[in-house]
Computed example of a mutant assay.
Amino acid sequence: MSIHLTVLGRVDTTAPPLKLPLAAGEVRAGFPSPADDYLEAELDLVAHLIQHPSATYYLRSKGSSMTGVGIYDGDLLIVDRSLKPKPGHIIIMSVDGELTCKRYDMMGNRHYLFAANPEFRPIPLEGRECQMWGVVTHNIHSLAPGFTV
């Protein structure tokens, strides 16, 4: 299935909020605007990224089958197991005892898992032992060389 996952742990629901500075305005990917150089507020990333803390855990991805949707080897995935998967969602599922991260969808009347890399074939779910582990809600990956999350 070509993408391996490492379970890192659950959200610490007892940890105090960690608020980081949030700059006002928007960042432009083109010409910079010097007028937006002030802070607007503080942002707690856990509160911003995690809707259901008691049902959320973190995984580390390994492999290249989901690069087409921006999930790369070593990325940190935030997974909510309380969400019901719908077609088009990126999910974590155990298929025949092996954890995988793929896009859940249908082909005709049959359920499949699809990679986001044309080198990988769809995985039919019919006739396989499947266990849903949750819906991937966010993906965090580093843009700085040598820096890992």
Rank of each mutant, 00 (worst) to 15 (best):
S2Q: 04
H4V: 05
L5H: 05
T6Y: 03
L8D: 09
L8F: 09
L8P: 01
G9V: 03
R10I: 10
T14A: 14
A15N: 07
P16E: 15
P16T: 11
L18Q: 14
P21R: 13
L22Q: 15
L22T: 05
A23T: 12
G25S: 09
E26G: 01
E26T: 12
V27S: 08
R28T: 02
F31E: 12
F31Y: 01
S33F: 00
A35V: 04
L39N: 00
A41S: 15
A41D: 15
A41I: 01
E42R: 12
D44Y: 01
D44Q: 07
L45F: 12
V46W: 03
A47M: 09
A47G: 11
Q51H: 13
P53H: 04
T56D: 07
T56F: 02
R60V: 10
R60M: 03
R60K: 13
R60H: 11
K62M: 02
G63H: 03
G63C: 04
S65M: 05
S65P: 08
T67K: 10
G70C: 06
Y72P: 03
Y72V: 02
Y72N: 13
D73F: 06
G74A: 11
D75G: 09
D75K: 12
D75M: 09
L76D: 11
I78T: 11
I78Y: 01
D80G: 11
R81N: 12
S82G: 07
S82M: 07
L83E: 12
L83N: 01
L83V: 01
P85C: 09
P85K: 05
K86Y: 03
P87L: 05
H89Y: 08
H89P: 09
I90T: 13
I92P: 12
S94N: 07
S94E: 04
D96Q: 03
G97R: 08
E98R: 07
C101V: 12
C101S: 08
K102D: 03
K102F: 05
Y104H: 01
D105K: 06
G108K: 09
G108S: 02
Y112N: 07
Y112K: 06
F114Q: 02
F114M: 00
N117G: 04
P118Q: 08
P118G: 08
E119W: 06
E119V: 06
R121S: 08
P122M: 09
P124R: 02
P124E: 03
E126Q: 04
G127Y: 00
R128M: 07
E129I: 12
E129D: 14
C130H: 09
C130N: 00
M132S: 14
V136M: 15
H141D: 01
S142A: 15
S142L: 12
G146N: 13
F147P: 04
